[in-house]
Nucleic acid binder design. Structure first.
Lengths: 215, 215
DNA sequence: TCGTTTCCTGACCGTATGGTCAAGGAGAAG
DNA sequence: CTTCTCCTTGACCATACGGTCAGGAAACGA
């Protein structure tokens, strides 16, 4: 028993706080810089400046640029996996896919940098996350395909290729993050406002759910 | 009339041939390297090796790395614009959007590198093609939105937000190029075969055309 | 207070990169 | 052959980058 649950919550060690705060600052800065410049274009100096720390301090917390990058990528993957739970425990495609689109669109809005880092990583052949693709992502995909297959058999939607449906969902939702700059440019240079985001979510859900004959 | 159409085709000057061939070799190599490593990660040495030329020779044909990159990006944009004509002169969404999906899917299959370079460029804030986005792309988009709007008014499809429909089309078709590695990994590590590509095209067209109520 | 561990950072290093240049080689023109 | 233009390329340069390190500061435990 280490006891002192409450007190140790209030003052869990200064050291721990420092480490946590600095790692957070570095990871946030890194996510932004990697997204905006790519792995090759990003520099440790730039990340350090954005985090408000000397460059040598980055290497105290993260041994190499690749280590830091790896941490950033895993971070995003976890966020997506969390959102993927929207799919489960849904009685049918209207609820399941509807919630999944909502969740992924929200992530594109709140975590645009992470989405870009992921996209960049995959485009370059997934040098550091190939194992994720082959294990976690493959398992998740197979599971969701089974769910969709079941919905089809239960007559809750038209028979469509579940794999290509998933790709369409991924592509479209992530497009709002990855191609956010293009979308903004085509929106008179302004980011989508609240109403436009709602419109986007509704449009995507409507198109997809109609497309699969669920509504 | 410059005359000698045939003869000047056969031997239009050795010099011209050399220049054309070398520029072609460099651009092809550059497209691949930029796609696989990003602008920052690509090196002139790597491009030179892949093109089979000494590095100094690249700088004879393209003054700087940025010049070379700019040429690569414009090249892709032109390919896409050409495919975009599928949209025009179509009597309705089934033909117009159907042909557009086919064309863009074919490009994703035949020009995966170009698509990735474009995606990368946009993700990084479009530093070198911002003017394209603001002029050519914006005009093209507005024109297509008008066409879709007309189809809706003519009762040839359900009323959907044309802009978000276009985004879905771009996102989905380009996904098969940009995330080709992920798709391949989820396909037991093998690239999609002919049948799978046909299935993908059919699935996307089916989902979209049903989604907009055109079939 | 003192010793120990963790954190901080300016200065430094080897390397790789984009770009230059001068000298030479190959086509074209007369 | 001569001359001119265009093409080719090894050697070179300045810079910027990832990463190291030694020595000091701050937090912690006793």
């Amino acid at each position: 028993m280490t006891g002192d649950a409450q007190i140790s919550r209030l003052k869990p060690g200064r050291r721990m706080d420092i480490r946590r705060e600095n790692e957070r600052a570095i990871l946030d800065a890194a996510e932004k810089v990697f997204a905006e410049a790519g792995f090759g274009g990003a520099t440790m100096q730039l990340i350090a400046d954005m985090a408000g720390l000397p460059k040598a301090n980055l290497h105290y917390y993260f041994a190499t640029k690749e280590d830091l990058y790896r941490r950033v990528v895993s971070q995003i993957f976890e966020v997506w996996l969390e959102a993927a739970s929207s799919f489960d425990n849904a009685p049918g495609p209207v609820e399941g896919i509807g919630a999944y689109v909502d969740a992924k669109m929200d992530i594109s809005r709140t975590h645009p940098h992470g989405s870009k880092v992921w996209a960049s990583e995959v485009m370059h052949g997934a040098p550091v996350i190939q194992d994720y693709l082959e294990t976690t992502l493959r398992d998740w995909t197979d599971g969701r395909i089974a769910v969709i297959q079941r919905w089809i058999e239960e007559g809750k939607m038209r028979p469509v290729n579940p794999r290509h449906l998933l790709y369409l969902l991924w592509a479209t939702t992530q497009h709002y993050a990855d191609f956010g700059h293009q979308i903004q440019t085509l929106n008179a240079g302004r980011p989508l406002n609240e109403k436009q985001w709602q419109d986007a979510k509704a449009s995507v859900k409507d198109l997809v759910l109609r497309g699969i004959g669920a509504i």
